[in-house]
Design a protein around this nucleic acid. Structure first.
Lengths: 210, 210
DNA sequence: TGTACATCAGTGAACGCGCGTTCACTGATGTAC
DNA sequence: TGTACATCAGTGAACGCGCGTTCACTGATGTAC
């Protein structure tokens, strides 16, 4: 029963369907391995429809990034804000990273594959970097809030804490890519927390209890 | 002046020349971006010569890995053995990683690109994993020696210390790939050392001085 | 030392394939009157 | 409410290209006598 839709509605719906299909196919096949044919087919359209909504394969992936990053940042901020202690806030974030890595083990490798691809195309590289910077900024802001709230200091710039944490997580995802039994998530959670703690110290005005 | 060479000599020389060219082209263009045509041409041969020495593009890359890993492991062990203190041994290793990342910023991304490619081909994945495992074993052995020599203990299995350190380094290389000004090497060196120290504690028989 | 045959490293061209992108076209939706 | 024209989301086929791999062949090296 084909419901009659207005043109912008139809267009938005098609775009969303293609985006959903793209996410599934990219996660399954990787950035190079995923073909626009397969994505279009999985969404129930032809390749041309993809080009009607997205300028290129790269733009399609960027749209995916935007969607995901927005979601992840919001989830992260929320988790930090409701946490009763600093430990709880950090652990909640570590656990979120861990659960996502468990549910979608190919996401980090996919992102990395895109980065290496983008690094060879200056426009795409700039676009990917802009997104990454936005994520780092958002996480850094969250880290600053946490430090203020719980009366501690970061020993390096919060943005670099965010960078180091992300880099460590992505590196560990790669280990799992090669050897799925490596770096089990529980182990990762503890190591991640340990890493974060090394960047913390009590505020000078604070007697010294973490 | 064409020197007359024996057949095995000629063959070994050609293989070495192709390997050298492959290293240069792979580092420059990435794993997917590098074509066998370009590698052969850079070595002064045709594509057929590559197939006369290597079964496939993947095998060619594996040969490169073997060469490099052997070299890196030996260099690492050597640095650790001549170091007068634990701090010096760890710093020497951190610095080596850092200098290599500086000299060949595309190596880590290249390795990672190969890993994601290999992860989709079970034979290649097994081959890549076997090499990675050998590296982890060698580093772990070095860490055990260091711990014994300087009377300290690792709080997690040395192999997992090696894994975490490598993962962190690779993650940071990716940051630099997207933004060459990010994570400058000096900063990385300190963060890397901090990470390693969190995995250390004095031996129980030791009064408590690290 | 010389000759006849065997081997095989490397050539060069062809094969086979998949992919991202483009484009003329279609038919349903939108607009003007 | 109805008609005539304009728009444009999505189609389907073609384009253009590069790549990894294969293979019949060649000529220098090796071997046997």
């Amino acid at each position: 029963m084909a419901v009659r839709l207005t043109r912008p509605e139809r267009k938005a719906r098609t775009r969303a369907e293609i985006l959903d299909a793209a996410r599934a196919v990219f996660l399954r096949e990787g950035f190079h391995g995923a073909s626009l044919d397969e994505i279009a087919q999985e969404a129930g359209y032809t390749k041309g429809a993809v080009y009607s909504s997205f300028a290129s394969k790269g733009e399609l992936f960027l749209a995916l990034l935007d969607e995901r990053f927005e979601w992840r940042i919001a989830e992260s901020l929320q988790a930090a804000r409701v946490a009763p202690t600093l430990e709880a806030a950090m652990r909640a974030n570590a656990r979120m990273i861990m659960l996502t890595a468990q549910r979608e083990p190919t996401w980090d490798p996919l992102l990395i594959e895109f980065w290496t691809h983008a690094s060879r195309d200056s426009e795409l590289r700039a676009a990917a970097l802009a997104r990454h910077d936005r994520v780092l900024d958002a996480i850094a802001e969250m880290l600053v809030e946490l430090a203020e709230r719980f009366d501690v200091e970061w020993t390096v710039a919060p943005r670099e804490v965010a960078r180091a944490g992300g880099a460590f997580g992505r590196g560990m995802s790669l280990e799992r890519l090669l050897d799925p039994t490596a770096a089990p998530v529980a182990t990762f959670e503890e190591q991640f927390l340990t890493l974060l703690r090394t960047f913390l110290r009590p505020t000078s005005s604070n007697g010294g209890s973490p």
